[in-house]
Protein backbone atom coordinates (compact mmCIF):
# COMPACT_ATOMS: atom_id res chain seq x y z
CA UNK A 1 0.00 0.00 0.00
CA UNK A 2 1.63 3.27 -1.09
CA UNK A 3 2.45 5.90 1.53
CA UNK A 4 0.47 8.59 -0.31
CA UNK A 5 -2.68 6.49 0.04
CA UNK A 6 -2.10 6.15 3.78
CA UNK A 7 -1.54 9.90 4.17
CA UNK A 8 -4.66 10.62 2.17
CA UNK A 9 -6.68 8.19 4.25
CA UNK A 10 -5.37 9.67 7.48
CA UNK A 11 -6.55 13.08 6.28
CA UNK A 12 -9.92 11.62 5.37
CA UNK A 13 -10.17 10.10 8.82
CA UNK A 14 -9.24 13.43 10.36
CA UNK A 15 -11.90 15.19 8.31
CA UNK A 16 -14.59 12.72 9.40
CA UNK A 17 -13.35 13.10 12.96
CA UNK A 18 -13.63 16.88 12.79
CA UNK A 19 -17.18 16.67 11.48
CA UNK A 20 -18.08 14.30 14.29
CA UNK A 21 -16.44 16.65 16.77
CA UNK A 22 -18.72 19.50 15.68
CA UNK A 23 -21.71 17.29 16.40
CA UNK A 24 -20.32 15.69 19.52
CA UNK A 25 -19.16 18.90 21.20
CA UNK A 26 -22.72 20.25 21.22
CA UNK A 27 -24.12 16.98 22.52
CA UNK A 28 -21.54 16.70 25.22
CA UNK A 29 -21.91 20.35 26.34
CA UNK A 30 -25.66 19.98 26.60
CA UNK A 31 -25.20 16.83 28.61
CA UNK A 32 -22.46 18.26 30.75
CA UNK A 33 -24.30 21.44 31.65
CA UNK A 34 -27.95 20.42 31.64
CA UNK A 35 -27.69 16.67 32.08
CA UNK A 36 -29.82 16.22 28.96
CA UNK A 37 -29.50 13.52 26.35
CA UNK A 38 -30.68 14.90 23.04
CA UNK A 39 -31.48 12.51 20.19
CA UNK A 40 -32.81 15.40 18.11
CA UNK A 41 -29.32 16.87 17.72
CA UNK A 42 -29.18 15.26 14.27
CA UNK A 43 -32.29 17.21 13.30
CA UNK A 44 -30.46 20.49 13.99
CA UNK A 45 -27.66 19.24 11.73
CA UNK A 46 -30.31 18.66 9.07
CA UNK A 47 -31.85 22.11 9.63
CA UNK A 48 -28.42 23.71 9.14
CA UNK A 49 -27.88 21.83 5.89
CA UNK A 50 -31.35 22.53 4.47
CA UNK A 51 -31.33 26.23 5.24
CA UNK A 52 -27.80 26.59 3.87
CA UNK A 53 -28.76 24.80 0.66
CA UNK A 54 -31.98 26.73 0.27
CA UNK A 55 -30.54 30.19 0.96
CA UNK A 56 -27.44 29.48 -1.14
CA UNK A 57 -29.65 28.52 -4.06
CA UNK A 58 -31.87 31.59 -3.74
CA UNK A 59 -29.13 34.13 -3.03
CA UNK A 60 -26.40 32.51 -5.07
CA UNK A 61 -23.74 32.66 -2.38
CA UNK A 62 -22.53 29.74 -0.32
CA UNK A 63 -21.23 31.99 2.42
CA UNK A 64 -24.48 33.86 2.98
CA UNK A 65 -26.22 30.49 2.94
CA UNK A 66 -23.78 29.13 5.49
CA UNK A 67 -24.35 32.10 7.81
CA UNK A 68 -28.11 31.70 7.44
CA UNK A 69 -27.86 27.97 8.05
CA UNK A 70 -25.88 28.37 11.26
CA UNK A 71 -28.19 31.09 12.52
CA UNK A 72 -31.28 29.09 11.61
CA UNK A 73 -29.95 26.04 13.46
CA UNK A 74 -29.18 28.19 16.51
CA UNK A 75 -32.59 29.85 16.37
CA UNK A 76 -34.45 26.56 15.96
CA UNK A 77 -32.33 25.15 18.78
CA UNK A 78 -33.23 28.02 21.08
CA UNK A 79 -36.89 27.74 20.15
CA UNK A 80 -36.99 24.01 20.81
CA UNK A 81 -35.16 24.52 24.09
CA UNK A 82 -37.71 27.05 25.28
CA UNK A 83 -40.74 25.15 24.02
CA UNK A 84 -39.85 21.56 24.87
CA UNK A 85 -36.36 20.75 26.08
CA UNK A 86 -36.48 22.92 29.18
CA UNK A 87 -39.32 20.81 30.56
CA UNK A 88 -37.07 17.77 30.36
CA UNK A 89 -34.08 18.80 32.49
CA UNK A 90 -35.67 17.54 35.68
CA UNK A 91 -36.87 14.33 34.04
CA UNK A 92 -35.03 11.04 33.86
CA UNK A 93 -33.08 9.96 30.78
CA UNK A 94 -35.91 7.76 29.61
CA UNK A 95 -38.27 10.70 29.21
CA UNK A 96 -35.53 12.68 27.50
CA UNK A 97 -34.85 9.89 25.03
CA UNK A 98 -38.52 9.59 24.19
CA UNK A 99 -39.30 13.26 23.89
CA UNK A 100 -36.31 13.87 21.65
CA UNK A 101 -37.14 10.74 19.63
CA UNK A 102 -40.54 12.36 19.09
CA UNK A 103 -38.79 15.56 18.02
CA UNK A 104 -36.89 13.59 15.35
CA UNK A 105 -40.17 12.36 13.89
CA UNK A 106 -41.61 15.87 13.94
CA UNK A 107 -38.51 17.47 12.42
CA UNK A 108 -38.11 14.89 9.67
CA UNK A 109 -41.73 15.06 8.61
CA UNK A 110 -41.82 18.85 8.96
CA UNK A 111 -38.70 19.26 6.82
CA UNK A 112 -40.21 16.98 4.20
CA UNK A 113 -43.33 19.09 4.27
CA UNK A 114 -41.40 22.31 3.71
CA UNK A 115 -38.71 21.16 1.29
CA UNK A 116 -40.16 18.04 -0.32
CA UNK A 117 -38.58 14.62 -0.20
CA UNK A 118 -36.08 15.13 -3.00
CA UNK A 119 -32.47 15.82 -2.11
CA UNK A 120 -31.32 19.45 -2.37
CA UNK A 121 -28.25 20.60 -4.21
CA UNK A 122 -25.53 22.46 -2.35
CA UNK A 123 -22.23 23.04 -4.06
CA UNK A 124 -18.79 23.66 -2.65
CA UNK A 125 -18.00 27.41 -2.98
CA UNK A 126 -15.66 28.35 -5.85
CA UNK A 127 -13.05 29.58 -3.41
CA UNK A 128 -12.67 26.11 -1.94
CA UNK A 129 -13.36 23.91 -4.95
CA UNK A 130 -10.75 21.85 -6.72
CA UNK A 131 -7.76 20.03 -5.32
CA UNK A 132 -4.26 20.81 -4.06
CA UNK A 133 -1.24 18.56 -4.32
CA UNK A 134 -0.18 16.93 -1.08
CA UNK A 135 3.52 16.59 -0.16
CA UNK A 136 3.27 12.88 -1.15
CA UNK A 137 2.36 13.96 -4.68
CA UNK A 138 -1.33 13.11 -4.85
CA UNK A 139 -4.07 15.73 -5.15
CA UNK A 140 -6.48 16.32 -2.26
CA UNK A 141 -9.76 18.29 -2.24
CA UNK A 142 -9.32 21.79 -0.80
CA UNK A 143 -12.76 21.71 0.78
CA UNK A 144 -11.88 18.75 2.98
CA UNK A 145 -8.75 20.54 4.15
CA UNK A 146 -10.91 23.57 4.89
CA UNK A 147 -13.22 21.43 7.03
CA UNK A 148 -10.23 20.15 9.01
CA UNK A 149 -8.93 23.68 9.52
CA UNK A 150 -12.35 24.91 10.55
CA UNK A 151 -12.71 22.07 13.03
CA UNK A 152 -9.36 22.98 14.57
CA UNK A 153 -10.49 26.60 14.85
CA UNK A 154 -13.77 25.60 16.49
CA UNK A 155 -11.93 23.36 18.95
CA UNK A 156 -9.57 26.22 19.81
CA UNK A 157 -12.46 28.66 20.08
CA UNK A 158 -14.38 26.34 22.39
CA UNK A 159 -11.30 25.86 24.53
CA UNK A 160 -10.77 29.61 24.84
CA UNK A 161 -14.42 30.24 25.47
CA UNK A 162 -14.69 27.65 28.20
CA UNK A 163 -11.43 28.55 29.91
CA UNK A 164 -11.39 32.34 29.49
CA UNK A 165 -14.86 33.84 29.25
CA UNK A 166 -17.66 34.47 31.71
CA UNK A 167 -19.96 32.20 29.74
CA UNK A 168 -17.29 29.53 29.92
CA UNK A 169 -16.93 29.99 33.62
CA UNK A 170 -20.65 29.54 34.08
CA UNK A 171 -20.60 26.45 31.89
CA UNK A 172 -17.85 24.99 34.01
CA UNK A 173 -19.73 25.92 37.14
CA UNK A 174 -22.84 24.29 35.73
CA UNK A 175 -20.95 21.12 34.94
CA UNK A 176 -19.54 20.98 38.44
CA UNK A 177 -22.66 21.76 40.36
CA UNK A 178 -25.95 22.78 38.91
CA UNK A 179 -27.36 24.20 42.14
CA UNK A 180 -24.31 26.36 42.69
CA UNK A 181 -24.67 28.53 39.62
CA UNK A 182 -28.17 29.36 40.72
CA UNK A 183 -26.71 30.51 44.01
CA UNK A 184 -24.22 32.64 42.12
CA UNK A 185 -27.11 34.64 40.79
CA UNK A 186 -26.69 33.46 37.20
CA UNK A 187 -29.83 33.42 35.11
CA UNK A 188 -29.90 29.67 34.60
CA UNK A 189 -32.71 29.65 32.08
CA UNK A 190 -30.82 32.01 29.75
CA UNK A 191 -27.57 30.13 30.24
CA UNK A 192 -29.24 26.85 29.28
CA UNK A 193 -30.86 28.36 26.21
CA UNK A 194 -27.50 29.84 25.17
CA UNK A 195 -25.64 26.57 25.60
CA UNK A 196 -28.29 24.68 23.68
CA UNK A 197 -28.26 27.25 20.87
CA UNK A 198 -24.46 27.06 20.75
CA UNK A 199 -24.61 23.29 20.38
CA UNK A 200 -27.28 23.68 17.70
CA UNK A 201 -25.18 26.21 15.80
CA UNK A 202 -22.21 23.81 15.77
CA UNK A 203 -24.47 21.01 14.53
CA UNK A 204 -25.84 23.34 11.86
CA UNK A 205 -22.30 24.23 10.78
CA UNK A 206 -21.41 20.54 10.52
CA UNK A 207 -24.57 19.85 8.53
CA UNK A 208 -23.87 22.67 6.08
CA UNK A 209 -20.26 21.62 5.47
CA UNK A 210 -21.12 17.95 5.05
CA UNK A 211 -24.15 18.87 2.95
CA UNK A 212 -21.86 20.59 0.46
CA UNK A 213 -19.69 17.48 0.35
CA UNK A 214 -22.48 14.92 0.15
CA UNK A 215 -26.19 15.59 -0.28
CA UNK A 216 -28.86 17.41 1.64
CA UNK A 217 -31.82 15.18 2.42
CA UNK A 218 -34.29 14.25 5.13
CA UNK A 219 -32.80 11.76 7.56
CA UNK A 220 -29.20 12.83 6.85
CA UNK A 221 -28.67 13.57 10.54
CA UNK A 222 -29.37 10.13 11.90
CA UNK A 223 -26.25 8.17 10.94
CA UNK A 224 -24.09 11.09 12.11
CA UNK A 225 -26.04 11.31 15.34
CA UNK A 226 -25.36 7.68 16.21
CA UNK A 227 -21.66 8.12 15.42
CA UNK A 228 -21.58 11.26 17.55
CA UNK A 229 -23.05 9.31 20.45
CA UNK A 230 -20.38 6.67 20.03
CA UNK A 231 -17.84 9.51 20.13
CA UNK A 232 -19.06 11.10 23.34
CA UNK A 233 -19.47 7.75 25.05
CA UNK A 234 -15.88 6.85 24.18
CA UNK A 235 -14.62 10.28 25.18
CA UNK A 236 -16.59 10.52 28.39
CA UNK A 237 -19.96 12.24 28.34
CA UNK A 238 -19.68 15.91 29.26
CA UNK A 239 -16.02 16.28 28.33
CA UNK A 240 -15.24 18.53 25.36
CA UNK A 241 -11.67 17.26 25.32
CA UNK A 242 -12.99 13.71 25.34
CA UNK A 243 -15.28 14.58 22.43
CA UNK A 244 -12.33 15.87 20.41
CA UNK A 245 -10.15 12.85 21.03
CA UNK A 246 -13.05 10.41 20.70
CA UNK A 247 -14.09 12.02 17.41
CA UNK A 248 -10.66 11.72 15.87
CA UNK A 249 -10.28 8.17 17.17
CA UNK A 250 -13.62 7.15 15.64
CA UNK A 251 -12.97 9.03 12.40
CA UNK A 252 -9.57 7.48 11.84
CA UNK A 253 -10.61 3.98 12.97
CA UNK A 254 -13.58 3.96 10.65
CA UNK A 255 -11.73 5.29 7.62
CA UNK A 256 -8.61 3.21 8.06
CA UNK A 257 -10.65 0.09 8.84
CA UNK A 258 -12.53 0.45 5.61
CA UNK A 259 -9.40 0.19 3.47
CA UNK A 260 -7.11 -1.84 5.69
CA UNK A 261 -9.47 -4.66 6.66
CA UNK A 262 -10.43 -5.80 3.14
CA UNK A 263 -6.73 -5.72 2.16
CA UNK A 264 -5.79 -7.62 5.31
CA UNK A 265 -8.34 -10.32 4.62
CA UNK A 266 -7.14 -10.37 1.02
CA UNK A 267 -3.89 -11.86 2.28
CA UNK A 268 -5.53 -15.19 3.06
CA UNK A 269 -8.84 -15.14 1.16
CA UNK A 270 -9.93 -14.69 -2.41
CA UNK A 271 -10.65 -11.10 -3.39
CA UNK A 272 -14.44 -11.04 -3.41
CA UNK A 273 -14.96 -12.81 -0.07
CA UNK A 274 -12.21 -10.64 1.42
CA UNK A 275 -14.06 -7.48 0.42
CA UNK A 276 -17.35 -8.92 1.70
CA UNK A 277 -15.98 -10.07 5.08
CA UNK A 278 -13.65 -7.09 5.38
CA UNK A 279 -16.30 -4.47 4.76
CA UNK A 280 -18.78 -6.30 6.99
CA UNK A 281 -16.27 -6.21 9.81
CA UNK A 282 -15.23 -2.63 9.02
CA UNK A 283 -18.81 -1.42 9.49
CA UNK A 284 -18.84 -2.96 12.99
CA UNK A 285 -15.38 -1.74 13.94
CA UNK A 286 -16.25 1.47 15.76
CA UNK A 287 -18.92 -0.28 17.80
CA UNK A 288 -16.35 -2.86 18.80
CA UNK A 289 -14.03 -0.01 19.73
CA UNK A 290 -16.75 1.49 21.88
CA UNK A 291 -17.54 -1.81 23.60
CA UNK A 292 -13.84 -2.29 24.27
CA UNK A 293 -13.39 1.18 25.74
CA UNK A 294 -16.47 0.84 27.92
CA UNK A 295 -15.50 -2.63 29.10
CA UNK A 296 -12.17 -1.18 30.31
CA UNK A 297 -13.35 2.29 31.34
CA UNK A 298 -17.11 2.33 31.92
CA UNK A 299 -17.12 6.16 32.16
CA UNK A 300 -15.25 6.72 28.91
CA UNK A 301 -11.69 7.87 28.37
CA UNK A 302 -12.09 11.23 30.13
CA UNK A 303 -14.70 10.75 32.82
CA UNK A 304 -16.09 14.10 33.93
CA UNK A 305 -17.66 13.17 37.23
CA UNK A 306 -20.17 10.70 38.51
CA UNK A 307 -23.42 12.01 37.14
CA UNK A 308 -24.44 9.43 34.60
Amino acid sequence: MPLSLIIEQALNGLQLGVTLFLMASGLTLVFGVMGLINLAHGSLYMVGAFVTAWVSASVGSFWIGLGAGIMAAAAVGALVEVAVIRRLYARDHLDQVLATFALILIFSEGTRWLFGSQPLWLDVPDLLSGAVTLPGGSPYPVFRLAIIAMGALVALGLYLMISRTRLGMRIRAGEADREMIGALGVDIATLYTLVFALGAALAGLAGAMVGALQSVQVGMGEPVLILAFVVIVIGGIGSVKGALIGAILVGVTDTMGRILLPSAFGLFMDASSATAVGSALASMLIYLLMALVLALKPQGLFPVHARA
Binding site: S4, L5, L16, Q214, P223, I259, S279
Partner: peptide, 19 residues
Amino acid sequence: IFTQLGQTDYAAEIAQIRA
Protein backbone atom coordinates in the same frame (compact mmCIF):
# COMPACT_ATOMS: atom_id res chain seq x y z
CA ILE B 1 -14.90 -3.05 -3.98
CA PHE B 2 -18.09 -3.01 -1.96
CA THR B 3 -19.17 0.06 -0.02
CA GLN B 4 -21.64 0.29 2.81
CA LEU B 5 -25.30 0.70 1.99
CA GLY B 6 -26.36 4.28 2.66
CA GLN B 7 -22.74 5.41 2.86
CA THR B 8 -22.32 9.13 2.28
CA ASP B 9 -18.57 9.70 2.38
CA TYR B 10 -16.53 8.13 -0.41
CA ALA B 11 -13.14 9.68 0.32
CA ALA B 12 -11.62 6.29 1.15
CA GLU B 13 -12.89 4.69 -2.07
CA ILE B 14 -11.73 7.62 -4.18
CA ALA B 15 -8.28 7.36 -2.64
CA GLN B 16 -8.20 3.69 -3.62
CA ILE B 17 -9.37 4.50 -7.13
CA ARG B 18 -6.48 6.93 -7.45
CA ALA B 19 -3.98 4.41 -6.17
